[in-house]
């Protein structure tokens, strides 16, 4: 997905001269096409994320679109105050792109696992929080990110994620996309964990449990109507996210349900527990260890709906 992101960005930047890339010495093997095509709009700040974000904000204050880009937590947590005070407070046109949310860089360890990013980014006024699940959403999302005026958080996948959507999608920022329909429950997910969720729903189908599956690619602003509609129509709501449970997608969905006074008969949030990962393993292995693999998701939902 990161390769696709960079390709789409370069394509857009050919026509849109406002687009700059401001880096912090990360992106080897991916960012070179932008650097080679637009060397005067591409800057590597060195290993200095605070300056990267401040410089991006200054560039954006002059009418440009500045993209900061790095992996996992580097462009968010190290420079969080720059994102808050400089970017969000001034509603500056800065786009913060991370590669590999959640446990993507699993064996590298906790420093490289972005597991609180959605909660933190969605707490910031003016910030859009976007997590594409596959190439279709990722492609549409880059266009939406550039078209949107203001701060934008883009949680990009790091590998060749398989498609979740079949064929073309009707994409709109802030609007949920239904992946499959069902009557017994609705599973909301955000980001590349959709690759585990959809097969889980298909496995449940074989056991006679009909799940609606909905991608909430935009966690903020969230699609309130889709959430309320799903709760009313299917009764049970499940959220799945590759992120800790506090403050993420499940929290956002439950806030909407409480605000709207729509109580689903059954409700379950699937995500990471309130701990730092202490186990060593690949992305796939860690997902399974923490209940986020297809079989573990299916088992949790079956238990809920029993």
């Amino acid at each position: 997905m990161r390769t696709l992101f960079n390709k789409v960005l370069v394509d857009i930047a050919k026509k849109d001269k406002r687009i700059w890339m401001i880096l912090a010495d990360i992106g080897y093997g991916e960012i070179e096409p932008f650097r080679d095509a637009f060397p005067d709009r591409w800057f590597n700040c060195g290993v200095a994320e605070q300056n990267m974000t401040g410089v991006a904000c200054g560039v954006a204050m002059e009418g440009n679109i500045a993209i900061t880009y790095s992996i996992a937590n580097f462009p968010t947590l190290r420079c969080l105050e720059q994102i808050r005070n400089d970017v969000c407070y001034h509603n500056a046109n800065v786009k913060i792109v991370i590669i590999g949310g959640g446990l993507a860089y699993g064996p590298l360890g906790v420093s490289h696992q972005a597991t609180e990013d959605i909660a933190i980014m969605r707490a910031l006024p003016n910030m859009v929080v976007f997590c594409p699940c596959d190439f279709a959403e990722a492609d549409a999302g880059v266009h939406a990110m550039i078209a949107h005026r203001g701060p934008f958080y883009y949680r990009c996948g790091y590998k060749k994620e398989p498609p979740v959507h079949k064929g073309k999608i009707a994409f709109q920022l802030g609007k949920a996309i239904q992946v499959r329909d069902g009557t017994d429950a609705t599973i909301f997910f955000t980001g590349t964990i959709g690759n585990q969720v959809l097969p889980a729903a298909e496995a449940l189908e074989k056991r006679g449990i009909h799940c609606r599956v909905v991608s909430l690619h935009t966690v903020k602003p969230i699609d309130r109507k889709a959430i309320v509609k799903a709760a009313r129509e299917t009764g049970a709501i499940i959220t799945v996210e590759e992120h800790q449970l506090q403050g993420g997608l499940g929290s956002a969905v439950s806030e909407v349900l409480c605000d709207e006074g729509v109580m689903p008969k059954k409700f379950l949030r699937i995500g990471l527990p309130d701990v730092y990962v202490s186990k060593v393993g690949t992305h796939e292995w860690l997902l399974n260890e923490y209940g986020l693999s297809t079989p573990k998701i299916a088992a949790s939902i079956r238990k809920l709906l029993q």
Partner: peptide
């Protein structure tokens, strides 16, 4: 501004632009 250390990076970005 208000938290120190924010002004110069932003000024650098403005100068670059």
């Amino acid at each position: 501004t208000g938290s120190l250390g924010h002004g110069l990076p932003v000024a650098v970005g403005m100068a670059l632009a």
